[in-house]
């Protein structure tokens, strides 16, 4: 007796790659890389839009500068810097391993990147708020 079985097509979910449940640190780094990427792209275009105030004229720009020095804006700057550092340092790690450099040490590099991110972000935060205070 033979039984014909029709396999169900693969139910791929487009956002399945975002699912970190049961996953390890490499996957977390990958998802963090993408989330920071999306955030930084949005910021890049927001930044370009804000720069249009320069074209409007001195009063428009200087008005924005005054607003941007409020503590809420400065806190957002720190978040931006964390995103840049995390994305940049992890990107450096991925480039190095993609070139065959330090491949067995990729996790060590990840932790070093994370520590550097936090340390440099802390220094930046101190610099930003010290300049204001």
């Amino acid at each position: 007796m033979s039984v014909e079985v029709e396999p169900k097509p693969v139910g791929r979910k487009p956002l399945q790659w975002f699912d970190v449940r049961g996953r390890r640190v490499g996957m977390w780094a990958y998802v963090a890389m993408r989330l920071s990427a999306i955030g930084l792209v949005l910021y890049l275009f927001l930044h370009l839009v804000i720069l249009s105030q320069l074209a409007v004229g001195p009063s428009a720009w200087d008005g924005f500068v005054a607003l941007a020095k409020s503590p809420a804006f400065l806190a957002l700057d720190v978040i931006l810097i964390v995103g840049i550092l995390a994305h940049g340092l992890n990107g450096l790690r991925l480039t190095l391993v993609g070139l065959g450099i330090g491949v067995p040490r990729h996790k060590t590099m990840l932790w070093i990147g994370l520590v550097l991110t936090l340390a440099l972000a802390l220094l930046s935060a101190l610099a930003i708020f010290a300049a204001e205070g």
Partner: peptide, 25 residues
């Protein structure tokens, strides 16, 4: 890799060495 350098320069030259972090017009 280029951005590590260029963004670093941009951040320092545009913001960190500027008093208050942003230039006037």
């Amino acid at each position: 890799a280029l951005l590590l350098i260029l963004l670093g320069l941009h951040m320092v030259a545009q913001h960190f060495i500027v008093k208050g972090g942003l230039r006037t017009y």
